[in-house]
Amino acid sequence: MGRLSVDLCGIELENPIIPASGTFGYGYEFAELYDINILGTFSFKGTTKEERFGNPTPRIAECTAGMINAVGLQNPGVEKVISEELPKLSRCFNKKVMANVSGFSVDDYAYTCERLDSCDQIGWFEVNVSCPNVHGGGMSFGTDPNAAADVTKAVKRVTKKPVIMKLSPNVTDIVSIAKACEDSGADGISLINTLLGMRIDLRTKKPVIANKMGGFSGRAIFPVALRMVYQVSDAVKIPVIGMGGVSSAEDVIEMMLAGASAVEIGAANLVEPYICRDIIEKLPEIMDKYKIDTLKGIIGGAK
């Protein structure tokens, strides 16, 4: 047990750093760059029952200190994830991975989690009820406490692994959604998914993104994410994973002081492919600087 280790729903993480879903594929692209076993874990690409191509392109837009994406859950579908992606991953990652799952109905979520439940590589489910980029699914389950509760219960019925509900910031009262998930048996909460955003190209005078809107992420959203992590972790007893614009070891510590038990890093991976490795290496030095003995000891320390 090192200074960086934390507990996430009963599973020990060597450190709290978790690349966020949708920015790390199924891991092996990054394994060509560095040994991904140094990570706490990572959350794999959002997986659905059926294969999805996602939205039309362009589905990426530049923003000040951030970006918009409207990928729309492109993935090969749960069967291929089990038969192809996870075996490939097992050759470069020997820790438990977090399975990020999305769906278009309560049954979809339950089906996909049930299929993945038998995979020993999977340590946790991260259930995405917050994707802003698909119609009639994703976010619609995360903007209503009753729907979020229904998804939580359905997934809990099919797995004994910890179930972490990933919440959308595009709501009036995120605390009520988090509590509904907790009351329905969720083992953890992760937040925030991207903020719904938009850009318009002055030359064409049309939205940059083919889908018009998309999810805004990157450094710019960090204060909003931090605030929501603070509010939610104050209101629930289950562990909270903080994410949203985290780009440095200092940001990680700030997130943990706000109440996060672990921290996901998303958009930053796309512009700085080595950032998770660099943050893990940098954390001890920054902890020394601020006289922090263990990361476990600072969770929620700002309250």
């Binding site: 949708g22 920015t23 790390f24 594929g25 692209e29 990054f30 690409k45 191509f53 996602g54 392109t57 362009p58 589905r59 990426i60 837009a61 970006m67 994406n69 990928v71 492109q74 940059v208 991976n269 796309l270 512009v271 492919p273």
Partner: peptide, 22 residues
């Protein structure tokens, strides 16, 4: 050419359909 997020295959931002799949 396409608008890209990462440029190295991680974000799926620049996918296109082809005869042999995406």
């Amino acid at each position: 050419e396409e608008r890209m997020g990462c440029g190295f295959g991680a974000c799926m931002g620049c996918s296109c359909r082809t005869i042999t799949g995406s």
